[in-house]
Design a protein around this nucleic acid. Structure first.
Lengths: 213, 213
DNA sequence: GGATATTTCCTAACTATATTAGGTTGGGTT
DNA sequence: AACCCAACCTAATATAGTTAGGAAATATCC
């Protein structure tokens, strides 16, 4: 019984049964030991979750780097997107657990998350995007990819008609947006924007209705 | 003590303390009753979560409709995006809980989720996008919005430098992509694409490494 | 090789949570 | 006045996580 085996088994349970299925009792049962025995290898449930998050971030980072090597711009982004989708499909639970609790988490987790972030930034460096716009572009691209995959994993697309095609179109759209990235002041990037830049959104006020009290 | 009060209090706890803070014990304590008393108003914890998800979807749907009324295309999308961000900021817990568990959930929850989906589709109808492309465009737009807001809410952007600007850029990027939406066959929409349509991504194979065993 | 230290598992016990069963009470109805 | 039922209660059970402390196996050191 080693720490790695505990985390391995937890990963399997997580991927197969979702977050609610993962309990120390179950991990212990499947490993043939009693729950308290796990505490000699992980620091309780929080420690196990921490280990899983780190594993998830590291896997994603490596994946991303491997997919991008030797490619650039749209080519790199497409490869990364495909690899990412492969990951969320193969390890839905592990992916999910990496979302949530970046902030306030242990330094090691923060570090793993940071590595993923910078790997992503690296890929976007191929595009003709001003340095101070890069972070915005990265947030957009990562968010778009992440949002699609999350919704897909959660079944948020309702009837699963043609999700593959939707994904291709989504990646295309991201590439298109990155290829025509603009600064808010004037045109920066090589290509001119297709439809200019429509009026700045005026701050709309929202009512939070009678939710929560 | 009414059902509505239970759900209200649960919403507050959820928004203030996150998913882990929400327990029946706590709801009961804050309402001045004992836990079993709650069972006369909700069907246990699963029932409470169900009610919360429904409330979340309904709130989002109404919000979206209200923001879009009287506007179209980019104008509508910008307003919707702002309203959405306002919602996730005001009710992070309630928003979170709507993500996850679409599939396999109770019919009422499915219905509430479906209403949100179709409201979103309605907004995109203003764009010059072919009918059979609409669903793809909606998945992209919703995913991008959702992904950004999720990452922001989870602190996934690391140092919170200029997230407001990132959001504006992201909404711009979504508008741009929708304005230049293409069909995979040929040009459909009004504007021609800025950078043509690069080679179809070839299915990359991924290794799932030694994760989960 | 034998004494010792460390690792790894165990049982026992405690806490919190969700949940069921069944009792009490008071307001409103016939 | 008798009744019903809505809304609360106490008591009890099951499961999860966790701590304390002990026993056995394994590694380490003289």
């Amino acid at each position: 019984m080693t720490r790695a085996k505990v985390v391995d088994r937890a990963t399997r349970i997580l991927d197969a049964g979702g977050p609610d299925a993962l309990t120390l009792s179950r991990v212990a049962r499947e490993l043939g030991v009693r729950p308290p025995s796990l505490f000699d290898h992980i620091e309780g449930l929080p420690g196990l979750l921490r280990a899983l998050r780190i594993r998830s971030f590291e896997a994603q980072t490596e994946l991303l780097r491997a997919a991008a090597v030797g490619r650039s711009e749209d080519d790199a982004l497409r490869a990364v997107a495909l690899a990412y989708r492969g990951f969320t499909t193969a390890h839905p639970g592990l992916y999910r657990i990496s979302v949530r609790t970046y902030v306030g988490d242990a330094p090691e987790v923060q570090r793993a998350a940071g590595a993923l972030l910078s790997a992503f930034l690296e890929i976007l460096r191929g595009y003709a995007i001003a340095e101070d716009e890069l972070v915005h572009a990265a947030r957009f691209a990562r968010g778009a990819l992440h949002g699609f995959l999350t919704l897909e994993a959660e079944g948020g697309f309702g009837l699963a008609t043609n999700v593959d095609a939707s994904f291709e179109r989504t990646v295309d759209a991201i590439c298109r947006a990155l290829g025509t990235w603009t600064s808010p002041i004037g045109g920066w990037s090589s290509a001119s924007t297709a439809r200019g830049r429509p009026s700045r959104p005026r701050r709309a006020r929202m009512r939070s209705a009678e939710l929560g009290r």
